[in-house]
Design a protein around this nucleic acid. Structure first.
Length: 341
DNA sequence: ATCCAGGCCT
DNA sequence: AGGCCTGGAT
C-alpha cells in the first residue's frame, strides 16, 4: 500500500504545512492539478471557441458516439447549415440525415431534428422560444438528451456545476479508484469531487480530455498523467473498468438492387423505428429472388449483430438517384457491389 | 475476420 | 437488458 491514499496529501506535504491538513486541501489539489493540465494540453476544437449553447449542444450530440477526429467534419457541416435551432426546425429532417450520412446511429439525427422543432416552439405551446434551456432537468426533457448530454450542455454552455459521466470519466475514475465496475452513484460522486464549481465546464472537459488523450482505453500514457499520485490503478490500468462481453447473433438477409432504364436503383425509405431508420436503401425484406441475379455477399458488423447480406440485382421501371437521398454505409456497400458487376 | 469504444431509448 | 452504426485496432 505504501500509504498512498486517494485524496490524502503525501507525508512530505503534510510536513510542509506543519500538520495543518485542511479539509479543503484534500479535494482542491487533484482538482487544480487536473485543470492546469487541461489548460496546457487541451486540443483546439471549434466548439470550445463558442459560448453559443446550440453549437455546444450540437457538438455533444455528435460526439455521443463519434470520435472527435471524425465528428469535427460533421460538426462543421451541420453547424454551418443550421446555425440556430430555428434553421434546423424549418428544414426537412432528411436534409439533416444527408449531412449525417456515414456517421451512424441515425436516431441521433432524427432526435436532434425533433429537438430543434421542440425548442423552436413558443413557450405558450410547450416550447422554449428558440433558446436552449439551461437546467439539467429541462435539458433532460429534450429528445436525444440523456444524463450525460444534459450535464455536459448545462455545465459547458451555462456554467451549471453538475458533473458529467461519459465513457472517458468512467475509465479515468475506475482506474484512479481501482474499481472494476463502479456504480453510477460512485461515478457521479467521484466526478462531482473533481468539479470546480467556478469552472464547471472546464472541469468536466478536463476529465474527459484526460480520458481521451492520456488515460486511453489501450496503452494509457501514464507518464504524462497529472493524476498518477492519486491513481490506485496505475499498476494495471487496462484492467479497469471491466469490459462487458457482447454476444453477437448472425443474421442473414437478402437485398434487391433493381435498376431502372436510366441506371438508377429502386430505393425505399427505411422505417424510423428500425435499423438505419430514416435512411434510404434497396429493399431487404420479403424479397422474391426468382429471376434475380446474385452478385455476392457482404458482411457488416453492428455492435450487437453480424449481418450477412446476399446481394441480388434485377430490373425495375423507376429508381431513385442515390445522390439525392441519405444512405447508410451498409446500403452504400450493397449498391457498390451491385453496380460493380 | 473479430473485437472494441461510445450514450440514449424502450 | 437489448437495440442502434462506424472506423480503427488487432
Amino acid at each position: 500500500m505504501g500509504g498512498r491514499r486517494r485524496f490524502n496529501l503525501r507525508q512530505s506535504e503534510k510536513k510542509a504545512i506543519g500538520g495543518m491538513v485542511l479539509e479543503k486541501n484534500i479535494e482542491i489539489e487533484p482538482k487544480s492539478k487536473l485543470l492546469s493540465w487541461y489548460y496546457l494540453n487541451k486540443r483546439d476544437l471549434p466548439w470550445r471557441e463558442t459560448s453559443d449553447p446550440w453549437l455546444i449542444l450540437l457538438s455533444e450530440i455528435i460526439l455521443q458516439q463519434t470520435q472527435v477526429s471524425r465528428g469535427l467534419q460533421y460538426w462543421i457541416r451541420i453547424s454551418t447549415r443550421f446555425p440556430t435551432p430555428k434553421a434546423m426546425a424549418t428544414s426537412d429532417v432528411e436534409e439533416l440525415l444527408s449531412l449525417w450520412q456515414g456517421a451512424g446511429y441515425y436516431a441521433r439525427a432524427r432526435r436532434l431534428h425533433a429537438l430543434s422543432v421542440l425548442v423552436s416552439k413558443r413557450k405558450s405551446d410547450g416550447g422554449y422560444d428558440g433558446e436552449i434551456p439551461s437546467s439539467v432537468d429541462e435539458l433532460l426533457k429534450l429528445p436525444g438528451i440523456g444524463p450525460y448530454t444534459a450535464s455536459a450542455v448545462a455545465s459547458i454552455a451555462f456554467g451549471v456545476p453538475t458533473p458529467v459521466v461519459d465513457g472517458n470519466v468512467k475509465r479515468v475514475s475506475s482506474r484512479i479508484l481501482a474499481i472494476e465496475s463502479p456504480s453510477t452513484n460512485t461515478l457521479r460522486t467521484w466526478a462531482g469531487s473533481m468539479l470546480d464549481p467556478k469552472r464547471a465546464g472546464d472541469s468536466n472537459q478536463a476529465l474527459m480530455e484526460l480520458g481521451a488523450i492520456v488515460c486511453r482505453p489501450k496503452s494509457p500514457k501514464c507518464e504524462l498523467c497529472p493524476m498518477t499520485r492519486w491513481c490506485l490503478g496505475i499498476e494495471n490500468p487496462e484492467s479497469y473498468p471491466s469490459k462487458k462481453k457482447t454476444r453477437r447473433l448472425t443474421e442473414e438477409l437478402d437485398a434487391a438492387v433493381l435498376i431502372d432504364p436510366y441506371g438508377r436503383p429502386f430505393l425505399t425509405k427505411r422505417e424510423d423505428n428500425g435499423r438505419f431508420g430514416g435512411m434510404w436503401g434497396p429493399p431487404m425484406n420479403d424479397i422474391d429472388t426468382t429471376s434475380m441475379l446474385n452478385v455476392g455477399k457482404i458482411t457488416h458488423e453492428l455492435s450487437h449483430r453480424k449481418l450477412i447480406v446476399s446481394v441480388w440485382t434485377g430490373d425495375c421501371a423507376t429508381g431513385t438517384d442515390p445522390k439525392t437521398v441519405p444512405i447508410s454505409n451498409l446500403d452504400r456497400k450493397i449498391l457498390d457491389m451491385a453496380f460493380a458487376i
